[in-house]
Nucleic acid binder design. Structure first.
Lengths: 221, 221
DNA sequence: TAGATTGTTAATCGATTAACAATC
DNA sequence: TAGATTGTTAATCGATTAACAATC
């Protein structure tokens, strides 16, 4: 039986999220000096069924041993290779307002695998000031920085009204991927991969689910 | 034909996210003085098919007129009622580190529908300092604030290692919902509804999708 | 009436689970 | 060999799309 060709791009999106969480669980197991882990245990740690763990792992070609389980260290290496974060992945932050400033600090200190290589803003009043030890640069310098550093990813943290224009500038500057934190679904301009994270949306869903939980309890009680 | 009983909790989660985006689109249409909108146009604005728009809207009992479309103002009111954000929804922030500070600023200024009523931290070195005009309080004061203000939702912005303990304290203090921003899947402790937003995960997925897009292009070129 | 657009049903698609032969 | 656990196939479930009768 031929080893399945691991064509990139064939991992469905929900599986990508779970693979990331398996990594977290595996790192924890490694800290605990565990050498082997079964799909059942890994699923327990990641909040996922054992069957789904096995299916997800099989789609990155990461194999265990029947009757034994998965080797922690080796599996972790496989996942890292498959999801390929080339160690300290460079990143720019667009928007130096409240959220941008927060993220600059957060990303600098807490996201070990990512490295902020620049903070940009189109507001002249902000340009030149310092943020987490970095000088805020004008948006028009972005293409230059992309050229010089080869950075591909950006965090878009500007007000909703400016998100579309900001994304255009990012695309034009040569960025490849954008994590949009503005509460505005972005018309994904041609060559740019856009992902949306909207805290307002998350809060609204949470709020709804909370009120449903309350209703259910009332129904029982 | 009886009007469908709008039992709360029967809206599937993916639909909840889209309903929120319809609200954004509708507000924009309102600003543009549009009175009516068709499912096709609303879908276009929200990046969703017309059929799905109609299905989603029907599950909150929000109805249009055949041959005509949906009345913008009225539909917006229906959605707001169904998703019920009771105007300025109170909120606490747990963790006054980089991310917490950022969120405190962001939530105070940019999330109009939410109001930060307190920032908490368990690190005595931080307690007493000011953040966005609010005094950082010790975690042990949380129950008191929950009692006094009736706040139900929290943003958990502590380091991964402290997330589990933080969630416990929130549950014990009487919070009902928690948006966890720590990169750690939280074992949802009994009566607390937890939602996960992990920027690391989002970045990793984005990064993967970018590299897939690159591979595809290479394949073509 | 003719044209437009809904609400809903049936068909399709994709993701998850259950089950089990393979095999350590 | 007996027990454990994988990788994968088939069954199930849920969400999306296509299609169309209802009706403005």
């Amino acid at each position: 039986m031929a080893i399945k060709e691991r064509r990139r791009g064939d991992i469905p999106e929900p599986a990508l999220g779970r693979l990331h969480r398996y990594q977290l669980a595996l790192r924890r197991l490694r800290r605990e000096k565990k050498l082997l882990v079964a799909s059942a245990r890994l699923g327990e740690l990641a909040g996922v069924s054992a069957a789904l763990v096995r299916r997800d792992l099989s789609c990155v070609g990461a194999l265990g041993q029947r009757g034994v389980g998965y080797e922690v260290e080796w599996l972790l290496a496989q996942l890292q290779r498959a999801l390929q974060p080339p160690a300290p992945c460079p990143l720019v932050i667009i928007g130096a307002g409240n959220l941008g400033a927060a993220l600059a600090g957060y990303a600098s200190f807490d996201l070990q695998e990512y490295q902020v290589v620049g903070v940009f803003d189109s507001n002249p009043a902000r340009v030149g000031h310092r943020l987490q030890g970095m000088v805020i640069r004008h948006m028009r310098e972005l293409p230059e920085v992309v050229q010089a550093t080869g950075v591909e990813l950006g965090l878009l943290a500007v007000p909703a009204a400016q998100a579309a224009a900001g994304a255009e500038l990012c695309a034009a500057a040569g960025l490849r991927g954008l994590l949009n934190l503005a509460p505005l679904p972005l018309r994904t301009s041609a060559p740019l991969v856009v992902r949306q994270v909207d805290l307002t949306e998350e809060l609204q869903i949470l709020n709804y689910q909370v009120s449903c939980a309350r209703d259910r309890k009332r129904g029982e009680g």
